[in-house]
Design a protein around this nucleic acid. Structure first.
Lengths: 352, 352
DNA sequence: CTGAAAGCGCTTACAG
DNA sequence: CTGAAAGCGCTTACAG
């Protein structure tokens, strides 16, 4: 049969997309009727409806979302502002957001603003002109602003890991709870001299995690010997330096080290091994971030606190959707729980 | 002065955006005139034009991009399909693409398809409905397809690090050239027994880099002793295993090791140190990828081949823009050059 | 120099 | 049961 319609027709790039009008003409009805047939609106004979649908299918009709959006005053797009394109934090968050939204037919504009106000401005302008239904501002730290002003834009906004405007909604992991998980795990394993090696004190999370570490120790009647708290850089190198200090001098030595991130933990584990100390038998180590590629390659593989970033992204996405739908959402900072991923660096249970 | 217009007016989220009609009414002209005034079209007294502009500015008018796009048949959006959201390859590529496009007023839809055909389908549908001007398909390997069919979509497409459809345009780094850079650097440094430790042979790049390594050696009259080529996994662990084999048995020992990625190189460097071999004095090491966070923390810091991913992304973005503008672009696979980032693991020049 | 009209591709009351 | 009309917010010939 010649002329039979197959989905391969029309591979020329320059062709005009088929419009509703094309469908209507081919089916011998008005555009209005065609529209209603395809959207399950109005009343018409089942026969007419299926015939129109059949024609639409055959022609490869795909409604123009631009026209629909104009009418509905809803673009089914949201903007994702981020300053962490190279980093590993935003990624799982972005994946979670995207996953939550794609099923609602909502697409995400990726707006990498780094720390450049010009880029921020540019992207915000573009988003607004494209009439995004909402914005997610995603960063690396709750205590730092993105290089943009988002207040009073007239668009729903959700913040994730970045400083929110007053009265808005922000998502962040519960760092204190995450840290408790790690330290309590050590305690349950029978460790009694638990040190903490972490990043610079200019980071809010450094204080939150350290406070939780101290609190758990206190709750169990454990002390913090001099030098058991070490704040420095977020680097393997500082992990090495910390071990040199912790084990180099006189005084009490730790039997466990809770680290502020996985890179520190990696440095700590390597340094311990180089000193002839066994991990976890002599010293247990737990990291933070559960950065798979570091945690899994550490020898032994690293136990680490996972911030559930992609679940957090999903939550953020769904909450934005609620906001867009006009639902009322309580403002404030929502702290989502972390989980401990146990590998081999922390030690086995006493009865294991 | 009461009623003076300030940019802070209207912070209520539910307010209607101001339209061109609002501007026209406020300025006492027709919408047509208002449009022309703002777009520098048509002829009118300079006075009228500036007055209209002033009104628009005062009202905070921002043209509705949806309406403009409908008319222009150009949405000023492109879709970025990727299956590497968690990985480190797509990121710099995405950043480069985004950077190239933002200045042209083009926004990027982030479409994470992982390896799921359902997700692929979903995102392609969404992009098509939203009338993207073009698509960039970005992956991890030129020898693997994304889980989507992109042929015959009627939209310009650029491929980056993923298998292109026949007759289309793809960007990828020049792996052979990158490998040559590394091996020639070793040769220039006076190394004569250069081994190659790399990933699985199921990867096309493994063959391309290995061939270049062999070619450079041959050009300099250098041989490949038995066991100097080791193909395994892309992991630190395999780096360790490789060193154990290279230095554990009898036979000739390498004075340089070119590694297929930075994780391998990291494993190799660590293993060499553990054996008491000095890097770079006894054995030079060069990695591939220039994954900053690994390369910089290796002791000593790793010399590595950089694929210039973000420049590649920029090229891909600009090329897509040309296609969208209807310019003819030669199809084929474009290989973009790598560069060698010299740190300390490869050794200093003989005269250094 | 300015405005009325038509139209981008669709949807939604409202008639008939 | 189906269609004509109005309209989303804009732009662009075309009149005047």
């Amino acid at each position: 049969m010649t002329g039979s319609a197959d989905s391969g027709e029309g591979r020329l790039p320059a062709r005009r997309p088929v419009t509703l009008r094309d469908v209507a003409e081919a089916a011998g009805v008005s555009v209005a009727t065609a529209s209603k047939a395809l959207n399950d609106q109005g009343r018409m004979t089942a026969e007419t409806r299926t015939r129109i649908r059949e024609v639409a299918r055959r022609l490869g009709f795909r409604p123009n979302g631009l026209a629909q959006s104009l009418l509905r005053r809803r673009s089914f797009t949201v903007g994702l502002l981020t300053n962490d394109t190279y980093g590993r934090f935003s990624l799982p968050v972005m994946a979670g957001i995207s996953e939550a939204l794609v099923d609602a037919g909502v697409s995400v504009f990726l707006c990498n603003v780094e720390d450049d106000p010009r880029l921020g401005q540019l992207h915000v302008e573009a988003m607004l002109e494209k009439r995004v239904d909402g914005i997610i501002a995603s960063g690396k730290r709750l205590d730092r602003h993105l290089p943009v002003t988002l207040a009073g834009l007239g668009v729903p906004i959700i913040y994730a890991f970045t400083e929110p405007d007053p009265g808005s909604i922000a998502f962040v992991s519960d760092d204190a709870q995450g840290a408790r998980l790690a330290v309590e795990h050590f305690v349950a394993l029978g460790r009694r001299r638990i040190a903490h090696v972490t990043g610079p004190e200019s980071f809010m999370v450094v204080h939150q995690r350290a406070a939780a570490w101290r609190a758990v120790l206190a709750e169990h009647g454990l002390g913090v010997p001099d030098g058991f708290y070490m704040s420095g850089r977020w680097s393997e190198r500082f992990g090495h330096e910390a071990v040199a200090q912790l084990f180099g001098g006189p005084g009490e030595k730790p039997d466990a080290i809770f680290c502020g991130n996985d890179q520190l933990a990696r440095g700590v584990v390597d340094a311990l091994r180089e000193r002839g100390l066994a991990v976890p038998d002599d010293v247990g180590v737990i990291g933070f971030d559960n950065w798979e590629i570091v945690a899994a390659e550490t020898r032994p593989p690293l136990t680490s606190v996972d911030m559930n970033l992609s679940a957090l992204g999903r939550e953020a996405g769904l909450t934005l959707l609620s906001l867009v739908d006009g639902k009322a959402v309580e403002p404030g900072i929502r702290k989502l729980p972390c989980r401990l991923v146990v590998r081999q660096s922390c030690g086995r249970p006493p009865d294991g």
